[in-house]
Amino acid sequence: MSVPVHIHNISKSYEKVEALKDINLEIKAGELFGFIGPDGAGKTSLFRILTGLILPRSGTASVGGLDVVNDFKKIRQITGYMPGRFSLYHDLTVAENLDFYASIFKTSLKENYDLIKDIYIQIEPFRKRKAGDLSGGMKQKLALSCALIHRPELLILDEPTTGVDAVSRKEFWELLNKMQQSGITILVSTPYMDEAALCNRVALMQNGKLLATDTPKNITKRYQGQIFALHTNKMHSLVIDLENTAAAAQVYRFGDSVHITSTSGNDESFRQIITASLEEKGHSAIQMIAQQAVIEDCFLALMDKNQTL
């Protein structure tokens, strides 16, 4: 039912920009695989290569043993793709869109009802509404239904939760988990770090490069050093003041606090050095709380390394 995806030395460039640099990835059948990275990381380009929409400059890739360049027609039969931009017909109703995509794949809603039932139930009350008039979350659900209507073995979702409210995002990921259980390989890209933890494995991408590929747990485990969340009475100058402190390996804003990493191994002395230098610069009410690294910390650390290379 589900297919593995192999990506070997894939590169792609547009005129002057190198979108993908020598990407290697093995995605197992039935995996829920996440691509995490900022805009312009190359996630969409990789997806477009896998669906046969663009050709790689070099390298090979295959979906279930089918080559993306030579067998793209067969791949399209077994792949469901949901582009980042809502690409269904705004002027057709929910039902018309579904029927259209079903008939193009020579199937029908009835035939695959069991697969999309959970999603379809949520959009069914709006059957007669035009797709363009749906809310963001509903649009995503409709797009997912259309991508699933032909019972694909590989589902590719390009930033499905961008611009969707928090509740809908949570629902959406629950749906993805269900899809995975019914035996579909799922590739999903997202700029939201918190969603990474919901994948089996993730690939962190930046500037067309893979920074790391592993399970979310292993990625955070690999983080070197101890993170402290800092709060003081002068938050606005905190980052600049810390950057001038040699002991700090890495400093960045994280939510409403500032994260600082100690790589010395001796956390207590690190704490004292930081506190002392901050007091010198006029900070008071200094709070330093030790934190577990999350994906975002790892990603920022890797990004930092990548840029200095």
């Binding site: 669906t51 046969g52 929409l53 027609k73 399209r76 039969q77 792949t79 793709y81 582009p83 931009r85 690409s87 269904l88 995509y101 193009i104 794949f105 259309c146």
Partner: peptide, 8 residues
């Protein structure tokens, strides 16, 4: 057209 293009 993007959605159409990935259909058969």
């Amino acid at each position: 057209i993007e959605q159409i293009n990935v259909t058969p």
